[in-house]
Design a protein around this nucleic acid. Structure first.
Length: 261
DNA sequence: ATGCCGGGCGAAGCCCGA
């Protein structure tokens, strides 16, 4: 069995205690982080290595940044989404994890937000999603257990947001965003959480503002997409709201799944 | 209509996020 979690931590350095506490309690075998908000050299490596994790870190100054933590041996496959341009933001890292005689390919993904939707940030988001789809298609051809996890900044359906009408024109919910996400999923991926939970209004993000957390007004925008070979092995998937309850939380909370190997 | 909150940067107030 391997447990794989994804969490947008919103600055690993300002939240180091919270993140370490969560790792000690949740004990994921693999953790995919987004928005570490530090340069690769500034990542607090020792604290995580002391917990037994191998690290793959792709950081940059101030913003973005992704990481993969693995209790099993791990080799980095790529630190940028193929097709990248010069000085591309740190939004993708992919690795092979050797677990119990099996190989699981994992990626930590931080998709562009895309707001405001009438700016050039929105077509950039859609283009990034399309570029991810192209890469995902080539990965599916390998017929491996594969988990593409991360903060997709995509709310897939009206069941995944507290106020569908109010969010209709937002870059996270727009029909073009959802269609682009479906084109990715429809290649043959399984949304790990949705495969096991059909109920609406299960969220992974709550805005810091306007008491959204207290009112449970959130969005489900963090996802674990499984290749068929991974979905065959899926035994559990959950959203872990524990760290969102604590002091100085990230505005996101982890989502995880278990695969029987 | 805008800010609400919160991090980074850098030492005040702006940029960015979702």
């Amino acid at each position: 069995m391997i447990r794989i979690a994804s969490w947008n931590v919103n600055s690993v350095r300002s939240r180091i205690g919270l993140v370490l506490d969560w790792l000690r309690e949740a004990k994921p075998d693999v953790a995919l982080f987004q928005e570490i908000k530090c340069q690769t050299e500034g990542f607090p490596r020792l604290e995580f290595e002391d917990l037994g994790y191998n690290l793959a870190i792709v950081g940059q100054k101030s913003y973005n940044g992704v990481a993969i933590l693995s209790r099993h041996p791990m080799t980095v496959e790529t630190e940028r989404l193929p097709g990248f341009v010069e000085d591309e933001p740190a939004r993708y890292v992919e690795a092979l994890v050797q677990a119990e005689g099996n190989v699981v390919r994992v990626a930590s993904i931080y998709l562009p937000n895309g707001n405001p939707a009438d700016s050039d940030k929105y077509p950039y988001k859609l283009a990034w999603l399309e570029r991810l789809r192209g890469h995902a298609q080539s990965l599916l051809a390998l017929e491996e257990p594969l988990v593409l996890g991360g903060d997709y900044n995509v709310c897939p359906t009206d069941d995944d947001v507290y106020d569908p009408v109010g969010w209709r024109d937002d870059a996270l919910c727009r029909p073009e965003t959802r269609a682009a996400f479906r084109r990715l999923v429809n290649l043959g991926f399984t949304d790990a959480f949705r495969a096991l939970h059909s109920e609406p209004r299960r969220y992974t993000f709550w805005d810091y503002q306007a008491g959204r957390w207290q009112k449970d007004q959130g969005l489900r925008i963090d996802h674990l997409l499984l290749s068929p070979q991974a979905a065959d092995r899926l035994t559990a998937a959950e959203i872990d709201k524990t760290p969102r309850h604590k002091d100085k939380p990230s505005d996101h909370t982890p989502v995880w799944c278990e695969l029987e190997l």
